[in-house]
Amino acid sequence: MAEKPTLREDQQLLDLEPLGQIGSEASASGGQLTRRTFLSGLGAAGLVASAGPLSAAAAPMGQAEGAAGAHTVLTVNGEQHDLGMLDTRVTLLDALRERLYLTGTKKGCDHGQCGACTVHVDGRRVNSCLTLAVMVSGKEITTIEGLGVPGRLHPMQAAFVEHDGYQCGYCTSGQIMSAVALLKEPVGPSDHDVKEGMAGNICRCGAYPNIVAAFQQVRNHSTMNG
């Protein structure tokens, strides 16, 4: 059981800051940064991703002082995280982002109105912003980080890349989590059916045509393969 949040495996693998110019130097003691943590860098084909300066950060965990808590264990992407007596107010979204540093799941509205925070709970897509973390203690949670990583993309992730199913990328995690869930839901074959199945994920950049194309490709491909 993971007691403290650590860097995700893919983050560690991808810590390839070019030039070795700046390392990840966040000091866990005293709360001050010893120096700038890293330069912005982006390598081709996802070779260079951010490690992020979080490392073994001692973030607020467990029961917040003065607030009611409940013992919460989140099983995320197959890994158990004991969050101790977690403040009951913490949503699944904020638990993932602010406690486990799984920031692939995004906050877009915090009220179930945009779908950016979509994750799977026991295989079903839900809005993690309206889900209290304590209520999914013990359930199987899958986030975007659990689907695939650069270099080992899930077919839906690969299809989004191929079809340019995004622009800014911010709603993309939610779109992909929705699309992957939709593969297993009753949905008709037409583009119209797919659009309705994706209605709960707003893309302000309007990449919808490409998102639909990505979904159809994955579905048709997996159908062909039986």
């Binding site: 000091s27 943590t37 300066p53 979080l54 982002r97 975007i144 990583v149 270099g151 992909i176």
Partner: peptide, 20 residues
């Protein structure tokens, strides 16, 4: 070129940064 980062939740947006 940033597609693999955006589709895996690896791309870091402002609110994704954490510090001790």
């Amino acid at each position: 070129i940033d597609g693999p980062l955006k589709t895996t939740g690896t791309a870091q947006y402002a609110a994704d940064f954490h510090f001790p």
